[in-house]
Design a binder for these strands. Structure first.
Lengths: 208, 208
DNA sequence: GTCTATATACCGATAGAC
DNA sequence: GTCTATCGGTATATAGAC
């Protein structure tokens, strides 16, 4: 546990505000002045406590990934059957992205730039999460529960679905205000139902 | 057809190079100087022919969307059954994103920022593409071919899967060099097969 | 540890020669 | 239409007082 994970309220507040700015504007688009203003601290405080903009970004990314990935790996490990593990994987990921709305936009930006600014610990987690799903799929296939599938594509499909759902809220709002009358009504319900629907669709796609 | 769609080689070259820069670095991260250098033109030429950085971005986005969306809508319209339309929808989208590697990263960045910099024509296309899929799903359900599903979630799942696949190539490369030995081998084949695999998975998820 | 003031560098955009 | 040179604004980062 590094210094920056400590419960220093000033630092935590900076990280929290920085996350939303990085999510909405990206590393290049975010402004240190604005982060300081919205966090209610002097700009020099950020440099004193954390370092430059790049360190701030790395720490935000690292902390998010750490928390989400540990919960995901733990929840999956608590199940035994492949389908239960897959549902736990999907449900936990939906929950994580719901609890932390900045995570999906930040990860999508990183995908777009080839993961250039993902800190090393983050890449390790990306890898572990991928390998975990690969093993779930392998287990399901060996037990005859899942049909054969390319694990890389399946992985991308699951992650992509959930990420796009999680990051898509502002876009949906924009489209709904622009094309009010033309959209089919009642497409969105509560988050619990949505996680279940995504799980159902994906499990349905993979099962024999 | 606007002036910027004309076959002026200088302008086309600028747009082509700008697309790759916007895809990799985003609007805020891209540098006009670098775009001019890589396009082999003087920086002032960009301002003379196109306008500022924002106009350059808008035009790149608009032209990409226009070309991709027209092809998508046309290919879907040429089919009759819901499954054929769905396969055409998915296959054409995969092809489009393959032919234009900048499209997926740019769209993912726009998702992350709530579509803030999508020009109006682009938003119209986003809406038409969404409505097209909604109607395909509706047709399939009415004909008893597809099971019931929330169209918004289904839509996000399809788009998300394909976008993540298309934009994920640099990330895959990064992970493959970092975690060479640990990855399962032969996960990636040729693009035609990949499009088919994605189609199969998604159609399988939706069919009764 | 927190503030003000400022250094330093960069970047988008343009003026003006040709 | 294309070049050079440069302006003006802005952003990161820091020095130094308190």
């Amino acid at each position: 546990m590094t210094r920056l994970e400590s419960a220093d309220t000033t630092t935590m507040q900076i990280l929290k505000v920085a996350a939303s700015h990085f999510a909405e504007k990206g590393l290049a688009g975010a402004r240190v002045d604005e982060i300081a203003r919205d966090a209610g601290v002097n700009k020099a405080t950020i440099y004193y406590h954390i370092g430059g903009k790049a360190e701030l970004y790395s720490e935000v990314f690292r902390a998010n990934m750490h928390q989400s990935a540990e919960k995901l790996l733990s929840n999956v490990a608590s199940k035994t059957s492949a389908e239960d593990k897959l549902r736990a994987y999907i449900t936990t990921m939906v929950e994580n992205l719901h609890d932390n709305p900045c995570a999906a936009p930040m990860m999508m930006r990183e995908m777009a730039s080839g993961g250039e600014n993902i800190p090393e610990e983050g890449l390790n987690y990306v890898m572990r999460i991928f390998m975990t799903l690969t093993e779930i799929l392998k287990q399901g296939q060996e037990e005859g529960e899942f049909r054969e599938s390319n694990p890389a594509i399946t992985h991308l499909m699951i992650i992509g679905s959930i990420m796009f759902y999680a990051a898509g809220e502002p876009m949906r709002q924009k489209l709904m205000t622009l094309f009010d009358g033309e959209l089919p009504q009642q497409v969105f319900t509560d988050d619990g139902r949505l996680a279940a629907e995504i799980s159902d669709l994906l499990v349905h796609a993979l099962k024999n």
